[in-house]
Design a protein around this nucleic acid. Structure first.
Ligand SMILES: [Mn+2]
Ligand SMILES: [Mn+2]
Ligand SMILES: [Zn+2]
Ligand SMILES: [Zn+2]
Lengths: 125, 125
DNA sequence: GAGCTTAACAACAACTATTGTTGTTTGACA
DNA sequence: TGTCAAACAACAATAGTTGTTGTTAAGCTC
């Protein structure tokens, strides 16, 4: 673990908003002005590979990175882009028997999509 | 509705595999050799805007387009990229009360991720 | 059917997000 | 201190998608 890796890791754990790679870069550059965006991408990919981070690809735009390493779900506001965590479990959600033999399911993601949220509504009045 | 639009629309309804824009382009070009990829993207976007199609952004790579206009869920094989439809409903899945006031939820997507599937397994032996 | 109008089109350029490449730095260790 | 490997920064390139613009073609008027 190099200084860059540690700094990126801590930046992510300090952010609860599922930042993009560029957002992480922005944050990290306040301390390490010479770090390259390439290194941030590389490190984030490594951490995802190690299972330390999750990568969220929710709709168009850049990938978001998620420091929470317990499985959880998300609520996405399509108006402002906010992504909230949802630690609730839904044990009743499973693949029907007819498909269970076809697919080796390893995880289940639930995404609630919203047309607006408290932050949006608050921002405009 | 122009000939191009009609052809793109029919190409999508003839494909059950959630094709990419490029795949649609490939298919359509067998008949209309001069159609541009730009037109395919434009038309697909228009159809999504009209609610005739859904756009799926599942993980990295190009967007996939979905002709089924009843809400449904998906099973994704991360090994081969196959995406299967799941018309089962999960009525028990909803946003917990504590967040229901914050987010104006308009839809719910469930994605089952698989590490392999019948097609993969069959293909290698 | 010629002339006007407008929407859609093809061609091409630009852009965003991400990854490939390569030479340099850094830090562990002999 | 010299050797080595891993990680890095700089830069180039790629994939996917959208912006722009001049051209074509369909619909309407007379
Ligand atoms: Mn999360
Ligand atoms: Mn589908
Ligand atoms: Zn919002
Ligand atoms: Zn498969």
């Amino acid at each position: 673990m190099t200084a860059q890796r540690e700094r990126i890791f801590s930046a992510l754990h300090g952010a609860s908003d599922h930042p993009t790679a560029e957002a992480v870069w922005s944050e990290v550059r306040t301390d390490m002005s010479s770090i390259s965006l390439r290194t941030v991408y590389q490190t984030l990919n490594d951490l995802v590979g190690m299972g330390e981070l999750a990568q969220l690809d929710i709709g168009p735009g850049p990938a978001r990175f998620d420091p929470m390493n317990v499985p959880h779900h998300h609520v996405v506001c399509d108006a402002c882009g906010r992504i909230a965590d949802l630690t609730v479990e839904f044990p009743s959600v499973g693949l029907p028997d007819e498909l269970a033999g076809d697919f080796d399911v390893v995880s289940t993601e639930i995404i609630f999509r919203a047309s607006g949220c408290g932050v949006c509504r608050g921002a405009e009045g």
